[in-house]
Simulated assay, not measured.
Amino acid sequence: MKLDYNEKSNLEYNLSKSVGARMTSTFYGYSGFYGEHCLRSSLEYIYAKYLDYMEIGWTYEDKTYLLSNEVRYKPDFLLENGEYVEIKGVFNYQSDLPKIQLFESEYNVKVTIFQEKDLRQLIKDTPFVFEHLKQEWKSHAKVRGMDNFGKRNPMYGVTQSETTKAKIKAKAKARFADPSFKEKFVNSPKRKAYHESRKGKKTGALVPRFILTCEFCQNSFEVIQHKVSKRRFCSKNCSVQAQHGKTSTTNSDIQTLAHTFALDNYETLLSVKLNNLKELFQALQDSIQKENHILDIRTICQIVTGKPCSRKELLYYLREYAQKVRGATAKNKAVELEDKKPLG
């Protein structure tokens, strides 16, 4: 389960590098809290669950260590026996391994590295199921990727070394020694805009506005340039009214139009086939849309009959109304589709 630190052959290194590049998205971590610790991946969560099950004391990212090459290193887990553990989804032998080896030699400690295959083997004799733990972590982890805010940032509370401070200071002095750079920095529009924005003032040129007319209510409204060709209505309410005609389920004007339509088309209502209902009611639908701005046939059916229904039920309702007005007693059924004649 421990990673062998012997030097890898060129073939092994190239293979691990190419595979690691392809697997980066697979091991991309989910950050979230497990107890008081903010873990950065599902693999760390699985290892923490294992430690708790085995009743092994541990701390997470306990301390940041400064190496002789001025690189900082913070191991993932410190166990109660003083052993350090590093959890790696993808291990980079070119950058990660030398840093860990230098930490081991300078602080006289041992770092054990676990990858996914090692963790699967580690929890094999426990009641845990690897995939279940992985999905469990994703279900309550809050942040996709790294959560490095505040005290969870590896650099929190870490001060720069005197050597690093001297380098930064020398570089800044060299830059401002150049008059052109200093002039450009002091009078930078971005710098001025930043300080103005900190005072609550709007900066920069306003995006041009264009005046359009709402296709439904005919009122004028303003939009920015990239929305000129996309906006037809001034509000969502107008859009809904124009597209679906949301209205009261009781409207005497619409019922009157439907009743007049039934009387004018009485013979057609008796002989129409069920596959021609859309064509039959298109004239009624157009007149209602023109007068009441209702486009949705389901809304029209509900207003006319008093209940949600289909075109077929609307047909029966209008036919019955027309028969009552004309004094007819027979209630003919709608003509069903004829069977197709066999070929040949």
Rank of each mutant, 00 (worst) to 15 (best):
K151R: 09
S161L: 08
H132K: 13
P154I: 08
E131N: 14
L133E: 03
R144Q: 09
Y156F: 14
V143E: 06
R144E: 12
K142G: 03
K134Q: 14
P154D: 05
W137A: 02
Q135M: 15
S161Y: 05
M146W: 10
A141P: 02
N153L: 08
E136F: 04
L133D: 03
V158R: 02
F149N: 13
T159C: 07
R152F: 05
G157H: 03
K142A: 06
G157E: 01
E131Y: 09
G145C: 04
D147M: 07
D147Y: 12
T159I: 03
T159E: 10
K134S: 08
Y156E: 02
T159H: 05
K138R: 08
E136M: 08
M155S: 13
V143M: 07
K142I: 11
G150P: 06
G145H: 06
E162P: 05
H132R: 11
F149V: 15
E162A: 12
N153R: 02
M146L: 14
H132D: 15
G157Q: 00
G145K: 07
R144V: 13
Q160S: 10
K138P: 00
G150K: 03
N148K: 11
Q160H: 13
E162M: 06
V158D: 01
H140F: 15
A141F: 04
Q135I: 11
A141I: 04
M155T: 07
R152H: 09
G145T: 06
G150L: 02
R152W: 04
R152N: 11
F149M: 13
E136Q: 12
F130W: 02
F149W: 11
M146A: 09
G145R: 04
Q135L: 14
P154Y: 07
S161P: 02
S161K: 13
W137Y: 04
H132Q: 12
R144H: 08
R144L: 14
F130C: 01
V143C: 10
T164R: 15
M155H: 05
G157R: 03
K151C: 03
T159N: 10
T159Y: 09
T164D: 14
G145S: 10
G150C: 04
K134A: 09
K134M: 10
M146S: 04
Q135Y: 11
S139Y: 01
K134W: 02
Y156M: 01
Q135P: 01
Q135H: 13
R144I: 14
R144N: 13
W137Q: 00
L133Y: 00
M146D: 04
S161M: 05
A141T: 07
R152A: 05
E136H: 03
M155Q: 10
R152E: 07
G157T: 00
M146E: 08
E131K: 11
V158I: 12
G150F: 06
E162V: 11
D147K: 03
K134L: 04
F130K: 02
N148F: 08
D147P: 00
S161I: 08
G150D: 04
K142M: 03
Y156V: 01
V158S: 02
T159F: 03
Q135S: 15
N148R: 14
D147V: 00
T163G: 14
N148Q: 06
N153Q: 10
A141V: 10
M155A: 15
V158Y: 02
